[in-house]
């Protein structure tokens, strides 16, 4: 039988370096820490008068967004530009795939233009993995969110934010609240937190939104905010899509807010210095109270800012992993 390579192995080159970035699953503590350390070195770039470093000069990065996104796409674009890459944004809704061209044909065309890197967002779980398996081995594929599967750069910028504010992971308790079922962010966060040896990671929500198999990923399951938030250092709220009411997963926004919305009152269950995070965009009054989102304990806007540095780190590491292999192949 020929099971294909799981994403967490496909993304590493034979030397164990990143050559794609598809998932936070299966990455070593060292590699995860290296991403965070590398991001550290890029944070200051945004503060310089000339906001550029030449690491990706002469490289072409293609943003392939099959699903709408503002924040993720623009921060990827900024990250690539600050690394001096040429950036091409492809709007899929007006591109040929919408006219019936297959995904494969489209990729081959882009490859023929000598692209070096694809940043992919797609509604199907596993799409970036599929692309990484099928494009020429010299093109690096960065997952910018696939279905419910993974959103690894978002998770890494969350890890970065946590480390900046809370320090070492083994002492920390982290709670992820809300629509875990549909959340690629939650999956990637749990893998990253486990990889960084976090003290405890909990997921909180009603059973319709918390798959019981999530325990296999290394999270403890909670259905009650008072218990789930007790003594946590970090509270991560997930975005709740309106469609969840229509598909009979929840009765109403107001009932969800009453039970799982993060209010000042519920936040009091967490440690007094706990921070509040959200991958955005936030729904005020649905999953989070405005006064919490705007409070000093909320680090939501810092997350966006760190996102650029973390994406610069991932882009440059994957490109160097690719270059390393091309050099090796060239020597042979």
């Amino acid at each position: 039988m020929t099971p294909s390579t799981p994403p967490h192995r496909l993304q590493l080159n034979p030397r164990g370096r990143l050559q794609h970035f598809l998932t936070t699953e299966g990455l070593s503590t060292e590699l995860l820490t290296e991403i965070l350390d590398t991001a550290d070195s890029f944070v200051s770039v945004g503060k310089q008068a000339v906001k550029k470093v030449p690491l990706l000069r002469g490289k072409t990065v293609v943003n392939l967004f099959f699903e709408a996104s503002t924040r993720t796409r623009t921060t990827f674009e900024l990250a690539a530009k600050r690394l001096s890459a040429d950036v091409l944004n492809i709007d899929i809704s007006t591109s040929a795939t919408a006219k019936g061209e297959s995904l494969m044909d489209m990729l081959w065309n882009l490859e023929a233009m000598d692209s070096d890197m694809f940043v992919v967002r797609h509604q199907a779980s596993g799409a970036p993995h599929f692309i990484a398996e099928h494009v020429t081995p010299t093109v690096a594929v960065i997952n910018a969110g696939d279905g419910r599967h993974a959103h690894p750069t978002q998770a890494m910028l969350d890890m970065y934010t946590i480390r900046r504010h809370k320090g070492a992971f083994p002492q920390l308790k982290v709670a992820i609240v809300g629509d875990v079922l549909h959340s690629r962010v939650a999956r990637s966060q749990v893998h990253a937190l486990r990889g960084l040896n976090v003290g405890e990671v909990r997921v909180i929500g009603p059973k319709t939104l918390i798959p019981h198999d999530f325990a296999d990923l290394g999270a403890t399951l909670h259905y009650d905010m008072a218990q789930g938030l007790k003594d946590v250092d970090v509270v991560i709220m997930l975005r709740l899509q309106r469609e969840r009411m229509e598909s009979a997963l929840l009765p109403s926004e107001s009932e969800f807010y009453r039970l799982y919305g993060l209010t000042q009152e519920k936040l009091a269950f967490a440690k007094p210095d706990a921070i509040v995070m959200h991958p955005g965009p936030i729904n005020r009054g649905v999953e989070i109270e405005s006064s919490v989102a705007d409070s000093p304990r909320s680090v939501i806007l810092q997350q966006v800012n760190y996102g650029i540095a973390v994406r610069m780190a991932v882009l440059s590491m994957a490109m160097s992993g690719q270059n390393e292999m091309q050099t090796v192949t060239g020597e042979q």
Binding site: A124, R148, H149, A150, R187, P211, D213, D216, L217
Partner: peptide
Amino acid sequence: GGVHAGPTATRLGL
């Protein structure tokens, strides 16, 4: 596009 509802499906987001 579904697979058996279990830990693998949950992990892969299928």
